[in-house]
Each structure stands twice: as C-alpha cells, then as structure tokens.
C-alpha cells in the first residue's frame, strides 16, 4: 500500500515552537505596546500615591494651615509651601488630591468587582440555560439598560443614603446589565463552537461543559470591560459626590466632592477645580488606555 510508505517517509509536521496560550501572547504584546505601558505607568503611579498617601502628602488633609489667611475672594494659588495651593477652608490642596486617590481607586475597584460579579451571575444563568431563563434574565437586563446609567445611580445612592458603600453599590448596579449582556452574548457564541460539540459527543456533563469550556473562553471581553469600567466608575463616583451623594464625612477628601465644593470659587480660585479634575481625567485615561489595548491584544482579529 503506497500510503503507508508515505507515512513512514514524511512525518513532516514537526512540533512547532511553543508560543504560549492566548493570555500569555496578549501579555507579551501589551509589554511592547507604548500606549499600554503609558496606561500601566499612570495607574501604577496612582496606586503608589494612594497606598503611600500618609508618607507622600506634605500636610494632613484635615489640617487648615491657611485658616487665618484665606477669605472667599482670596484663596492662595500654588506656591512653594503649597504646590497646589490652599482650598476654600485653608487646607493643603495637594494633600487632599493625594488622599483623594484612595477614595477614587477604592470606589472604582469595588464597584467594578461588584458589578462584574452581579453581571456574571446573570450572564451565566442566561448563557448556560438559554430558553426561558435566558428570556427572563435578558428582559430584566433590558429594563435596567433602558434607565440612563447616572439617573439609576443617583436614584439608588439616594435611596441607600449617603455613604461610600451606597456609592459603590449604585455604580455596580449600573454596570451589572452591561456585564450580563456581554457575557451572555459570548457564551451563546461559544456554545455553538466545535469544541463544545466535541465535549458533548464525548459525553461530558452539561455543567462541566459550561464551567470548564464555555465560561473560560467567554471571559476575554469581560476582562476588557472590567478595565474600562474602572475608568467610568471613577468618573461616576466623582459625579455622585459632585451631586452631594458621596461619602457621609465631608472631611474625607474625595475628588468629586472637591470639584463640587469649589463651584462658588471658580472665579477667584480656578486651581481648586483644575487639580482634582486633572486627577480624575488622568486616572480614567490610564485605565482606558489599558482597556483599549487589552481589547486589541486579546482579539484574534488584531493579531499579527
């Protein structure tokens, strides 16, 4: 038989060099990507600042070193002693921006994790069971999505009362339907894939197919969305604080509230809006840069 000679002669397909799995390949691409590196550096900076706030901040954010000198029309701007100037109560603005990073990152991370967890539960329910479970869950998600995000966050935060926890829950709730819909869509498409059919033909149990094949292969866009959610959560937290729905203790520095309380002094002390505003923008930018590049790195369509 001529075919057996062919087999003996050519085992031409050698094992190729290992190139790692999808996540490792994505990581390698991100490490070479200047935009992603910029994002990492920005975020790393904020994390360091937040963690080491007591060491870095030149003053206690609650102290009022300029209490005797300021008036509503005379709020000193940046100087050698106070790099970012003083705020309307005579507190050191730089120290307050530094301590504010703690609040913003905390709210962002916790709100994102809560939102992702909630969205994943709904998404897995809809994506794994399909049929009427899917219909019911997705109609609930549609209803949640039909309410403007900020409006819903305001309503929830208002009902739950003024606390950091209620801000986190409110922002998480806004993100739950987004994660749910994203994960459900991914799982639906993965369920149609050949390797799921192969697992079924092997007699693998349904629960095991969902948990060990469908779900892990559906997570890439969810991770990207989580990164982007961190950015929007920080902005939303600032917006809620700005509207007076932030944490209960006004002495705790928070970027959003700092912005809100400077409204009346915009003409005389524009620096009070500038610094917390910049901080919010740069932190959100950092997460957005990472998220966008992560999306491309994980998407096989962009692979070179």
């Amino acid at each position: 038989m001529s075919l057996s000679q062919v087999e003996a002669a050519t085992e031409s397909d050698q094992v190729e060099q290992p190139v790692g799995n999808l996540r490792q390949a994505a990581w390698r691409r991100l490490r070479r990507d200047p935009v992603a590196i910029t994002g990492f550096v920005l975020i790393a900076m904020f994390i360091v600042v937040a963690v080491l706030a007591p060491l870095i901040a030149p003053y206690d954010p609650r102290d009022t070193p300029g209490a005797g000198t300021i008036t509503p029309t005379n709020i000193p701007g940046p100087s050698a002693e106070h790099w970012f100037g003083l705020d309307e109560q005579g507190r050191d603005e730089l120290s307050r921006v530094i301590y504010g990073a703690r609040q913003s990152l905390l709210v962002g991370v916790v709100a994102m994790l809560l939102g992702m967890a909630g969205g994943m539960v709904l998404g897995v329910l809809a994506g794994a069971f399909g049929r009427w479970v899917d219909s019911v869950v997705m109609r609930i998600v549609d209803i949640m999505l039909s309410i403007p995000g900020l409006l819903m966050a305001i309503a929830i935060a208002a009902v739950l009362g003024r606390s950091l926890t209620s801000v986190m829950i409110a922002i998480a709730a806004v993100n739950v339907p987004i994660f749910a819909r994203l994960l459900r869509g991914q799982m639906m498409s993965q369920r149609e894939s050949d390797y799921v059919l192969a697992a079924r033909s092997l007699g693998v149990r349904r629960r095991s197919i969902v948990l060990s094949h469908v779900l892990p292969n559906s997570m890439s866009p969810v991770i990207v969305q989580a990164t982007l959610t961190l950015a929007t959560a920080i902005i939303e937290a600032a917006a809620l604080s700005f509207l007076g729905l932030g944490g209960a203790d006004p002495a705790v520095p928070e970027w959003g509230r700092m912005l809100a309380s400077t409204q009346r002094y915009l003409a005389s002390a524009p620096h009070l809006a500038l610094f917390p505003g910049l901080a919010i923008m740069v932190a959100a930018l950092g997460f957005t840069l990472i998220g966008e590049r992560l999306r491309e790195a994980l998407d096989p369509k962009y692979r070179r």
């Binding site: 799995n21 894939s193 390797y195 059919l197 192969a198 007699g203």
Partner: peptide, 23 residues
C-alpha cells in the same frame, strides 16, 4: 444517552476548532 456516548465517538473536520484552545 450521555452514557451511551462512550460507545460512539466523533472525529471532527477542523481539528483546531474542535479542541478547546485553553486545554
């Protein structure tokens, strides 16, 4: 039927698509 599958297996057309990339 799941137990019966032990006796009857399938080989697929596209070996890349029929293998879970994470496995």
């Amino acid at each position: 039927m799941r137990r019966q599958r032990r006796q009857m297996q399938m080989v697929f057309q596209d070996p890349m698509a029929s293998l879970d990339p994470r496995q």
